[in-house]
């Protein structure tokens, strides 16, 4: 299990154990974090699974591919340098303790 800490807009923190190999989006969905809509189910096609990744671990995650980069240009909340689509972040043991902040809106 990899611990992921999802922080909502109002500061509410959810520590969730997500199996290795799952994506950050999948961990949020099953646990009902409404701040991640993920309409396309992880196809990198909807941009409603946007998160801000805490800087300390950003370097451990492979950079966005072209599709993700293009979709990130159009997220509803502000795109920042640490913006990612959570369906494109696959969890490995190295990411244990990953902190992601949910944006104010997805759609």
């Amino acid at each position: 299990m990899v611990k992921v800490i999802y922080v909502e807009q109002d500061g509410a923190r959810h520590d969730i154990d997500v199996p290795e190999g799952w994506t950050v989006m999948q961990g949020a969905q099953r646990n009902g974090l409404d701040g991640i809509e993920a309409e396309c189910g992880g196809s990198c096609c909807c941009a409603t699974c946007h998160v801000y990744v805490a800087e300390d671990m950003l370097g451990l995650i492979p950079p966005p591919g072209e599709m993700e980069d293009g979709m990130l240009d159009n997220v509803v909340a502000e795109r920042r340098p640490n913006s990612r689509l959570s369906c494109q972040i696959t969890l490995t043991a190295a990411l244990d303790g990953l902190v992601v902040h949910l944006p104010e809106a997805q759609s």
């Binding site: 999948q26 969905q29 009902g32 992880g42």
Partner: peptide, 15 residues
């Protein structure tokens, strides 16, 4: 690339 539970939108516990 994805197993059954991975594509669940909500788990039973969440509901």
């Amino acid at each position: 690339l994805a197993l059954g539970e991975q594509i669940e939108i909500r788990s039973r516990e969440t509901l």
